[in-house]
Simulated scan of single mutants.
Amino acid sequence: MTRRPTGAGSRETDRRQHELEVQVRPVVEGAGFDLEALTVTQAGRRSVVRVIVDSDAGVSLDDIATLSRAVSQELDAGDDGFGSQPYTLEVTSPGVDRPLTDQRHWRRAVGRLVEWVDDGRKVQGRVVKVAGDVVTLDIGGTTREHQRETVSPARVQVEFSKPDGGKEQRS
């Protein structure tokens, strides 16, 4: 998925961003990760290429370093000379504030406390299970199934101590 940064709007920027996504996606997926987003923004005379990746197993700092080298090599080897222009490459994982929208986002949040807005009020629940478009949530001790679109977008909440003593609740 390619997201346009706020304030961007030229067709050339959109075209270039799409071309880079097509170029970088096989490198990211070949390493076993999902390409969550790729954006290109201008910072003075440099371009900033931000590549956001994720996986079911998470993303470690070693993964980021390995992917950074591989993506940089791909950009530098491109026939169009993008690598010859000054650019800064940022490879990162999604932050905890990333909205849970896709099924894979919800699947990766099993065991986590999430918050969403329902009829204008904030609701929190713990993700128990995800099966297709159905999300099972524990809300105040009651387990309920919801269609994913009715609780999306939700955001993972930061917890300093988990109710199960800190153990992950993965299924």
Rank of each mutant, 00 (worst) to 15 (best):
G81H: 04
D14N: 08
Q23Y: 04
G120E: 13
G125T: 07
I52S: 13
S84R: 13
T6Y: 10
G81S: 05
L61G: 15
V130K: 02
G132M: 00
I139F: 01
S171G: 15
T41G: 07
R108M: 09
G132N: 01
R16P: 05
D14E: 12
L100F: 02
F82Q: 10
T88W: 12
A131C: 08
A31Y: 06
G120P: 09
V114P: 05
G95R: 07
V151C: 02
L61A: 13
A37S: 15
G30R: 01
T13F: 01
G9I: 03
S84L: 10
Q157W: 02
R45L: 08
A77S: 11
E74H: 03
Q23E: 13
S152D: 11
R98H: 03
R107W: 06
S68W: 05
H18C: 06
Q85K: 11
R15W: 09
V59A: 06
V40T: 14
F82W: 12
E149G: 02
D119W: 10
H18E: 15
V114I: 09
V51R: 09
V49K: 12
R45W: 08
G120K: 12
R11C: 10
G166M: 10
L38H: 11
Q73M: 14
V51E: 06
G7C: 06
G7W: 04
V71G: 07
K167F: 11
A8E: 15
Q157T: 12
D54P: 05
P5V: 02
A77P: 05
R16C: 06
V49D: 11
L61C: 09
G111F: 04
R11I: 12
V117E: 15
G140T: 07
R170S: 13
E21D: 08
P26I: 00
L38V: 08
V53F: 02
Q17F: 03
V24G: 06
G83I: 03
R107F: 05
T6R: 15
R25S: 02
A70K: 09
R170G: 12
D133M: 01
E90Y: 10
D133S: 06
A77L: 05
S84D: 15
F82G: 05
E74S: 11
P163T: 08
W106G: 08
R46N: 14
V48S: 08
G132V: 00
E29K: 00
R25V: 02
A154M: 02
D56E: 15
V123G: 11
G83F: 01
I52H: 09
G58P: 08
S161C: 06
V110H: 07
T13Y: 02
H18I: 09
R121C: 05
R16S: 07
W116A: 10
L89T: 14
G95F: 04
S10E: 12
R3E: 14
L35K: 00
E21F: 00
E168K: 14
G132F: 00
E19Y: 02
R69K: 11
K122Y: 05
H146F: 11
R144H: 10
E19F: 02
V24M: 07
L38W: 08
H105F: 00
P99F: 00
R108W: 09
S84Y: 05
D164Y: 11
D102L: 08
